[in-house]
Design a protein around this nucleic acid. Structure first.
Length: 457
DNA sequence: GTTGAGCGTT
């Protein structure tokens, strides 16, 4: 058997490189990215329509076009949007502030292990710049000899770049290197989960089905289906906001109604601020939570679902579920059946600088208790859309504004109804409730952050 | 001038 090659170029007009395919005729994404770091897929010109066609990507394998295979035509790399948008980033205004903030919240220094002795900081930077803007690159050296210690650190400007880099191995100057979140940083930074729990799966829903379906909403970096069959699975997105935006929703895939909710933290160790972030690395070659038992089976996320659908309100002791601190944090909120929910489409997303939002759903909750508990947890209530008496936000430390305030009037922390640092002015979109029976909350913000947040209700 | 799991003079 002879190896088949296909021609791949970085872009039109660039010189193609021949890449080897696998026995099944597919091209490994890792083969592609070894030659074109940061590339996330392939496209080719359809000779008839002259428009680009995307190459099917599934389970890390790029599949040849069904009509005629790879052939002798040239395929072009597809890169994440960010790499293509260098000039757009120069729109420095309030968005820049938001961007910096996101960076601060989400990006960490990353350790690069296994560097060749010869690799310089310049080499390191140049390699990783294909994934996005690099804010820092350093190679650790012996102070006396100047000799590299074989590892270094990098920092990206965007979380997307960080995620992409963490999701794969890297060939740098001829050596395979690993990029990880440094031990010293682990757990310190609050990360937004990229992984969602898919409940009510049936046995005929394959990983491909899930990947294809959820791929509509954003890049899927991992799909995990427990074996033997356990009626649930996990889907990991590159973008945590996409993951969050789907939580709480029901989706029909191949006629099966599945329910999307937050994936349970992988362990119950809730010291600190909750989410460990090792899970953020879409599998890293393996498949999701391969450690023994995973998240504890249906008892993990299932518990949350039970609570969510539970027969009665779970009011009473939620202020204490976080242990001795007495605060509730994200997992606690989940345990209440409160699922994370950003929103998709529309320009609302840009008004949600933290990428965090919760939709409390139509739960039979006591408004005052909700407000108090959320206040303790550092969450601010931004809308009460139920036809109930409004809770007294001010009492709990919330700033309240008129129900019909809009985003513009509240930008820059102005808004009506108070401006205390640390809390969020609540608001609802475009002048009022869209749907009764829902609560919206947003995480409280620091004084320097834009006090705004609009959430799909 | 060698090495190859790890964790950063600030």
């Amino acid at each position: 058997m002879s190896i088949e090659y296909l021609q791949v170029a970085e872009d039109e007009g660039e010189e193609p490189i021949e890449l080897p395919t696998e026995d099944d005729g597919t091209l490994l994404l890792s083969t592609l990215s070894a030659q074109f770091p940061g590339s996330s897929g392939l496209k080719y010109r359809n000779p008839e329509s002259k428009s680009f066609r995307g190459v099917r990507l599934s389970e890390g394998r790029l599949h040849p076009p069904p009509d005629g295979g790879w052939g002798s035509q040239i395929f072009y790399c597809v890169f994440p949007k960010e790499n293509k948008r260098k000039s757009d980033d120069n729109l420095e205004n309030s968005t820049a502030k938001t961007k910096r903030m996101e960076t601060k919240l989400r990006c960490t220094d990353l350790i690069v292990l296994g560097l060749p002795w010869k690799t310089t900081e310049q080499n390191l930077r140049e390699y990783f710049e294909t994934f996005g803007e690099v804010l820092m690159a350093q190679v650790k050296k012996d102070p006396k000899t100047g000799q590299s210690k074989g590892f270094g650190f990098i920092r990206f400007a965007s979380y997307e770049s960080q995620m992409r880099v963490l999701a794969q191995r890297h060939m740098i100057d001829g050596r395979w290197c690993d990029v990880k979140v440094p031990n010293s940083k682990e757990g310190l930074i609050q990360q937004v989960p990229c992984k969602v729990f898919i409940g009510r799966c049936t046995e005929d829903l394959t990983a491909d089905d899930l990947r294809e379906y959820f791929g509509k909403f954003g890049e899927v970096t991992d799909v995990f289906i427990p074996k033997p069959f356990r009626a649930f699975s996990f889907v990991t997105f590159l973008d945590p906001e996409v993951a969050q935006s789907l939580c709480g929703e029901d989706h029909i895939i191949k006629g099966v109604s599945v329910h999307v909710s937050n994936a349970a933290p992988k362990s119950e160790t809730r010291a600190g601020s909750g989410y460990g972030n090792r899970d953020m690395r879409g599998g890293g070659g393996g498949h999701g939570p391969s450690r023994g038992g995973g998240p504890g089976g249906p008892d993990g996320p299932g518990m949350y679902q039970q609570r969510y659908n539970g027969p009665g309100p779970n009011q009473g002791n939620w202020g204490n579920q976080g242990g001795p601190r007495g605060n509730i944090d994200m997992p606690n909120l989940q345990a209440l059946g409160i699922t994370g929910q950003g929103q998709q489409g529309s320009n609302q997303q840009s008004c949600n600088p933290l990428g965090l939002g919760l939709n409390l759903g139509a739960l039979p909750m006591n408004p005052a208790l909700v407000a108090a508990a959320l206040n303790q947890a550092g969450w601010g209530l931004i809308g009460n859309l139920q036809n109930q008496p409004e809770p007294n936000f001010n009492q709990g430390g919330f700033n309240s504004g008129p129900n019909n305030s809009n985003a513009a009037s509240n930008q820059n922390g102005g808004g009506q109804g108070g401006n205390n640092p640390g809390f969020l002015n609540w608001m609802s979109q475009g002048g009022g409730p869209e749907q009764p029976g829902r609560w919206s909350v947003a995480q409280t913000t620091a004084a320097t952050m834009p006090r705004q947040g609009i959430f799909k209700i």
